[in-house]
Nucleic acid binder design. Sequence first.
DNA 1: TTGTACGCGTTATCAC
DNA 2: GTGATAACGCGTACAA
Lengths: 352, 352
Amino acid sequence: MDTGSGTAQIREPRRRRKMQRVTMMDVAKLAQVSPSTVSLYLRKPEAVSPAAGQEIARAIGALGYVPNLVAGGLAAASSRVVSIIVPSIRNAFFAETVSTLQSELAAEGLQVLLGHSEYGEAQEEALVRTALSWAPAAIVLTGLSHSPGTRKLLEASGVPVVEMWELGGEPLDMAVGFNHPQVGASAARHLLSKGRRNLAFLGARMQEDHRAAQRASGFEEACGAGGATACEVINHLGAATVEAGTLLLNRALQQIPDLDGIACSNDLIALGVLFECQRQGIAIPGQVAVIGFGDLDFSASCIPSLTTIRPSGDLIGKEVARLILSSIQGARVEGAQRIIDTHHVLIERRST
Amino acid sequence: MDTGSGTAQIREPRRRRKMQRVTMMDVAKLAQVSPSTVSLYLRKPEAVSPAAGQEIARAIGALGYVPNLVAGGLAAASSRVVSIIVPSIRNAFFAETVSTLQSELAAEGLQVLLGHSEYGEAQEEALVRTALSWAPAAIVLTGLSHSPGTRKLLEASGVPVVEMWELGGEPLDMAVGFNHPQVGASAARHLLSKGRRNLAFLGARMQEDHRAAQRASGFEEACGAGGATACEVINHLGAATVEAGTLLLNRALQQIPDLDGIACSNDLIALGVLFECQRQGIAIPGQVAVIGFGDLDFSASCIPSLTTIRPSGDLIGKEVARLILSSIQGARVEGAQRIIDTHHVLIERRST
DNA sequence: TTGTACGCGTTATCAC
DNA sequence: GTGATAACGCGTACAA
């Protein structure tokens, strides 16, 4: 490909780094002020004389200066980074929350550092450890249960912590979410109120997904209290997918011959149930009523439309952002304000 | 609320920061070596005498030392951060890629900084600007089209850049993905091969989603070349959702009375089409054949199972990680290796 | 309002 | 193999 100059020409690999040469001092020189004035201008433009401000702005534009947040973070002993750790970003619930959170934080000049724990406490601890080494402005975790090591690290760090998507325990610092056992109970009561008595709760990965397990417990308890005839909790070891739903339905059918009500720990599972029922000619809600969890994209449009429970993942993101922001601005978040219940909402549709 | 000591007692807000007191020097002191040795041990343990290594390791454990990556980044002029910018993490495609990418990078001790452009070039530029201020080890962008400002910033920075999810243009640096017009063409040819001649392409947000628009173009072109009788591209201004699919189907039905083949720019849209057809009693694939794009979770399980085109989002994540890693380790990625085609795969199922 | 001086915690280069 | 020493780029008193 090397047309041209005869001899083999060693193509010098494009040199890396050191090109972010433009420092605050360069700007200061060009603007004829001292570096600290530039720094001041960057942080509080109104505290600098308009004339100097003009010059500085001009210099920044001319040089294409990009502030070095690494240096800034080091000097200020706290970076404008928020570390978010979720089990998996593939999960639509967390994707929604992270998406909202990222937007809200970006608007305030905060960056998001993302990590996946894959429902593992050890992995979470490792992620927290590296997160901490960035001196983040805050750390956001999913759920209330963490390894002792994680707790220790977090407490020793003094970094604001928000635990999300779960309420009911003692948070490390702040918490935003809702109560999962109550979600399970709502589902059970809804089915019971429709006259269903032979119930099943279909969940996935509950050996790791602590919150799904909590929904199952709440479901069982409400079943007992509400006079259900049968109440089975069935777990699929793999992830919560549509296919898992089809598998779980068949197992439920085997275990409960008169099955007439199903609660799913996830709308994807519910969708699988819907499909499998259609295949087997089981009428919904005629023969079996189905309620899901999540209010995902398709839940309003599927056939029949799916009764489900909306967790408001975006609201969680918003509230987490609010807590972080006020916690950063020195205004210490106090007492009751530190635990925010975003509630859950039951959306009744045609499947029940 | 303030019970207790008579006088108004100002409850001192839990002090922030400065608790990350344990520095490398503390470790050095405890281990009776110099800070440089500790630093060396941390980066190349084998370059330090076993005895000293033991001591250092012990000290680190005892003190609970967590390295300060901010300081490290400043000194080394390059941080162990990779900035990833996608249109939206709610999109299952990108969620999959980001998830894989994050895991691969975390395994190598790299953190992920996440940003959402929401399909906006201006927003992307802002994100790139702040990303750059972290002196990232690499930057990952979605697609090949960016604002001139973005290009300038990136080129001036010297940071390795990977553009993903699109091939066919001239990448800034490296690229991983596939050709979208070819995807559209594959869909068209598949429908034509089934004897369908009255075709429609249903897309969403194509005024912003450049790649979806490319799939539509490829589709139209192949329709022309393949002798289609009708070929309409219909766009929904909102996001690609199941509901958008139901809306789009109805518009297609109006525009093409003899409609017998549909390609969707997204499996969610296809699912909406499936549902709406079921509602209206339109037989699939009897009356209308449907092909999607994405091979999402439900595509294999829905009724009928959905013929679709798999983009291999996880493979993209893996390849991007590979490029980044080798590009960091000095081993300059060269020539042909800099552009990686992950291809697309047509998965035939019952809907065609 | 603006400038000076110092320190943040680490890496990298060199002598030893 | 080990340890001084000098950056790294910016915040932040404090002084002017």
